[in-house]
């Protein structure tokens, strides 16, 4: 709502900066305000069904600018039409900045022994489903102490 209160005088950062420097005239401000209102109306009147949304893989790669033109064209077209996916991409960019402002926690790895994935996941499953059925994870269990020792040696290299 606050955004719309601003629209009549168009005080977004670019407009304000340019206006202060005398770089844009009132006509430019008017067209920007007009466009701003139109785009908000357009978004509120459109909806895309869930089946049509972009895959997480595509969204993530797009946000990082890692796609080639061949891949990007249909994605951009989708993002123009789909407010859901567009909102996700924009929030992911905002998230990047927000996280960059936070302190990065350094995780001490060297001395820590690998914990078994089965233990971690069984704990999660018991919290979520109320079960501790470990059979799901049994297929790749190896003897404690063999692989881990090898791995820690390899890891040091």
């Amino acid at each position: 709502m606050q955004k719309h209160e601003e629209v009549s005088s168009f005080t977004r950062e670019a407009g304000t900066k340019m206006e202060n420097k005398g770089l844009i005239n009132s006509e430019d401000i008017q067209i920007q305000g007009l466009l701003d209102r139109y785009l908000h109306l357009q978004v509120s009147s459109k909806s895309v069904s869930l089946e049509e949304h972009l895959e997480e893989d595509s969204i993530a790669a797009f946000v990082e600018g890692n796609l080639l033109e061949r891949e990007t064209q249909p994605i951009i077209k989708h993002l123009v039409d789909c407010s859901f996916c567009r909102h996700v991409t924009s929030e992911l960019v905002k998230l990047d900045f927000a996280l960059a402002d936070e302190e990065v926690m350094q995780v001490a790895v060297a001395d820590e022994k690998p914990s078994r994935v089965s233990e971690v996941l069984n704990g999660l499953l018991s919290r979520i489903f109320g079960t501790t059925d470990g059979a799901v994870f049994a297929h790749h269990e190896k003897e404690e102490g063999t692989e881990k020792n090898e791995n820690s040696e390899e890891n040091k290299k």
Binding site: E56, D57, A60, E71
Partner: peptide, 12 residues
Amino acid sequence: SGRGSLRGWLRT
């Protein structure tokens, strides 16, 4: 698919 970073994919 590896088209973006694993972290980028994870946050999505």
